[in-house]
Design a protein around this nucleic acid. Structure first.
Length: 829
DNA sequence: GAGCACTGC
């Protein structure tokens, strides 16, 4: 047992403590990047690489691109030939669509802002930067709409704003609004991703000429998981959707805010759908929580990249007591209703009489270069082969510079295609010796930061980059330098099947809007070209929009989210898209099984409230609560395991060639005969008890250091939250050390019993033919080959997930005893 | 003997 003396403070912890004392700017420079950067998959590079380009390279905000736009404009008139074409969103009379009669035509506070930096001392670098940025801001398409937007919210409480990438909406709208008279509280701006929230906040702070975050002068802050950088005087706060939902637990009326801007609504995450439901109740004053605002108005701005604002408008109109437009039979000549589902007709949509002046809509054109689109004349059976052909055709025919971005389905397809291209390169390039070189780069989430980073480094001279990417390049990462896009038209899509209680992850056709999004990636820096590896009729036949996540996932989390925020009748909670009754009922049933709801009235129980506060699925939350029961007494180890399930796979794939026997043996030592749960635990504990060089340790054990760092972050957060929820005392937590202890047989059993409590449906038993069948539903289940229990025959198994790929697999599996079931499910809590 | 798209509290 190694003592935790002063000198023995684990590396990471000590550093973290030091970090707390330094300012934000220093944070970025410190040898260990702050939490958020670690999650950018770019952390490693941050240490050495200059900071700016990193942020720039990420898909962040329209505004960052504005810089390059402005640069293009400065480059001179010669660029006029390639003048960005406004995409089909462009609406000549868009101003009319906002509230009637713009009063100040001049843009937002130009004079007052000018005055502001005149007043600042000239040597103030923030003010100087602000001044420079003002010119860039004024060149954004949204700038001319500033007065309209301000006036719209003066009169109405809801603004629906459609603006494509490049319009500047994410950065400018909060700045247009924060000086309005009604804006006495804060403006929240939600984002689906953490990176976006952080980088937008940074940018807006710069544009406003103030520091970011906690400083008393700071007007802009952000709050994302693992990184709270909000100051008392912040007027604008960027946060992730999940964070705002979490805030609603303690403040369901959002009283600290005067305005909530919901950005990227078209992505339709479950969280955004829930958020819109809550906001509708608040803005219309129809929900219980709305009373707590005591008459203080709330303004809601809903921003989307697609022009389809009708659905959103109908949704809010309904909240104001108007019937949804669908309920009306459209008159034959009523073009506004007829056009609703016609993607090709995107005309300005003047607020119709039915909106009764409560909802404004506004369109802002995006800024983008034209993209020429080609289709295959015949459908292809093998999109990899078709892509291979097109890549070399582009390389032969198209001028440099111009990198190629290929949208594919998954890591394996990407690896194979990369191999195929590299095999062909010698033939093609030597045969035609005038050709530039080709550099093939894979891009998908499971790659290490360093590998992902490669797409951002400039190619060597006379080299064309070919990036083979998954959907990650559609929303999360913007690849610079791309002029050619090849679109397979496919993506892997996860779908939860309620009846079977399993997730399937299958290759499916993408939606039209997804195809358009992919196409747009070719026109960000110059005119480009998009080759679709399917026919034009195929494209026309695609669904208009992707199926929203809320129709594709297990609803137990969403339902608990509603219940915990005061929604009693979840069936009538306003949702943009209503899931099936069956899916809702299944979720309610599971929550009842988990004791999260009272069986008498279906309201949330005390236990349910505890679960709802944790950043986990209800099943994992229930497991944690079970582990805190003194009879079980295994909270800390259960947290370690749950943390693993909430991070990427910690085990690095063992490839026969590169794994040496030593590492393999080291890895094997971590494995536990009881199964994957305790194997994960032993890995976390061994890692945590490593005091000298964790990175080296991870390498030696074929464990992903990055994943493990994330596990440690989640573990820390869960420990703190459990203490807050009084599931563990401060003293107990302080006494916990990371010394390597062997988990006793009985503790091991207790741990598995806790998981049993959280996963009543994920149990299967061995049947006479040697296969496993689930106890609920008698479905055939096979142990996934990645499990330490693969090919073992055990009395019964418990598993963390049930997925369908080629067959139905149980992943993360442990052995249990049938006689535990009675004990676990009979026990009162 | 499989092979996991992508986010988020």
């Amino acid at each position: 047992m190694s003592a935790t003396n002063e000198a023995g403070v684990p590396h990471g912890q000590k550093r973290k403590r030091e970090e707390k004392d330094v300012s934000n700017k220093k944070k970025v420079q410190s040898d260990k990047p702050p939490q958020i950067y670690k999650n950018l998959q770019l952390a490693e590079s941050l240490k050495d690489a200059p900071k700016k380009p990193v942020y720039k390279n990420l898909q962040i905000a329209e505004s960052l691109k504005a810089q390059s736009k402005a640069k293009n404009q400065l480059l001179g008139k010669s660029q006029k030939a390639e003048k960005p074409k406004f995409k089909n969103l462009q609406i000549a009379e868009s101003q009319k669509t906002v509230a009637n009669g713009a009063q100040d035509d001049e843009g937002p506070n130009v004079e007052s802002q000018k005055q502001e930096y005149r007043d600042n001392r000239p040597q103030n670098p923030l003010a100087a930067r602000q001044k420079n940025l003002l010119e860039v801001r004024q060149s954004l398409p949204i700038w001319s709409q500033a007065a309209n937007i301000r006036n719209a919210l003066l009169e109405n409480h809801v603004l629906i704003l459609a603006g494509e990438t490049g319009s500047g909406k994410s950065t400018q709208v909060p700045q247009f609004l924060h000086t309005s008279a009604w804006c006495t509280g804060r403006i929240a701006v939600t984002q689906p991703r953490r990176v976006a929230a952080v980088s937008l906040a940074r940018r807006v702070a710069e544009e406003m000429g103030t520091p970011l975050g906690k400083s008393p002068q700071a007007l802009v802050g952000y709050n994302v998981r693992f990184d709270d950088n909000v100051g008392k005087n912040n007027k604008v706060k960027f946060l992730t959707e999940g964070m705002l939902l979490q805030e609603m637990l303690r403040d369901p009326a959002l009283v600290e805010y005067s305005c909530v801007v919901v950005d990227e609504v078209h992505e339709r995450s479950v969280n955004v759908d829930l958020l819109l439901g809550f906001l509708r109740g608040l803005v219309t004053g129809t929900s219980e929580a709305a009373k707590k605002r005591k008459g203080k108005p709330l303004k809601v701005v809903v921003m989307s990249a697609t022009a389809d604002t009708e659905k959103l408008k109908d949704f809010f109109s309904e909240g104001f007591g108007e019937p949804r437009a669908e309920d009306n039979i459209p008159a034959v000549n009523d073009t506004t209703s007829l056009n609703k589902d016609d993607a090709s007709v995107e005309k300005p949509q003047v607020p119709s009489a039915s909106s009764s002046g409560k909802i404004s809509t506004c369109f802002v054109e995006g800024r983008m270069y034209p993209v020429q689109t080609e289709y295959l004349s015949e459908p292809t059976r093998d999109f990899s082969e078709a892509a291979l052909l097109q890549i070399f055709q582009i390389h032969r025919k198209e001028p440099m510079p111009g990198d190629v971005l290929v949208f594919l389905t998954g890591g394996d397809v990407i690896t194979n295609l990369q191999q195929a291209i590299e095999d062909m390169i010698p033939n093609v390039i030597t045969r035609d010796s005038g050709l530039p070189k080709l550099l093939v780069l894979p891009l998908y989430a499971a790659l290490s930061q360093a590998q992902q980073q490669a797409i951002f480094s400039p190619a060597p001279p006379n080299t064309r980059k070919v990036i083979l990417a998954t959907n990650i390049a559609e929303t999360s990462i913007t690849v610079p330098g791309v002029r050619f896009v090849i679109d397979s038209g496919k993506a892997k899509i996860k779908q939860f099947r309620n009846r079977l209680g399993l997730d399937s992850l299958l290759v499916k056709d993408i939606s039209k809007s997804s195809a358009i999004q992919r196409q747009g990636r070719a026109g960000r820096e110059a005119a480009g070209k998009c080759i679709r590896l399917y026919t034009k009729p195929n494209f026309e036949a695609l669904e208009k929009d992707a199926v929203p996540e809320i129709l594709r996932c297990d609803l137990s989390s969403a339902v608990l989210t509603m219940k915990a925020r005061g929604v009693q009748d979840v069936m009538s909670f306003p949702l943009l898209t209503r899931p099936s009754r069956e899916a809702m009922e299944r979720a309610l049933l599971l929550l009842l099984q988990l004791d999260a709801l009272n069986p008498e009235d279906g309201n949330i129980s005390d236990l349910g409230r505890k679960i709802a506060r944790l950043p986990l699925t209800p099943a994992h939350g229930r497991t944690i609560v079970a582990a805190a029961d003194p009879e079980m007494g295994c909270l800390l180890p259960v947290i370690d395991i749950v943390a693993c399930f909430n991070s990427e796979n910690i085990f690095v794939e063992i490839k026969d060639q590169d794994a040496n026997d030593e590492a393999r043996e080291a890895r094997n030592k971590l494995s536990r005969r009881q199964g994957d749960h305790l194997t994960l635990l032993s890995a976390v504990q061994a890692y945590a008890s490593e005091r000298t060089d964790r990175k080296q340790w991870a390498k030696q054990h074929l464990i992903s250091h990055r994943s493990m760092q994330n596990v440690m972050d989640v573990r820390k957060q869960l420990r703190a939250q459990c203490q807050q929820a009084k599931l563990i005392t401060k003293e107990e937590l302080a006494a916990a050390d990371d010394d390597l202890d062997t988990v006793s047989e009985s503790t091991g059993n207790n741990i598995l019993k806790c998981f049993l409590r959280g996963f009543p449906a994920n149990v299967a038993r061995l049947v006479p033919d040697g296969s496993y069948r689930t106890i609920q539903g008698h479905m055939a289940v096979a142990i996934h080959p990645s499990s330490v229990l693969y090919s073992r025959k055990l009395e019964a198994i418990l598993y963390n997930e049930f997925v369908y790929t080629n067959r139905t697999y149980a992943r993360s599996v442990s052995a249990i005893q049938m006689n535990w079931l009675e004990e676990v499910y009979a026990a009162p809590t």
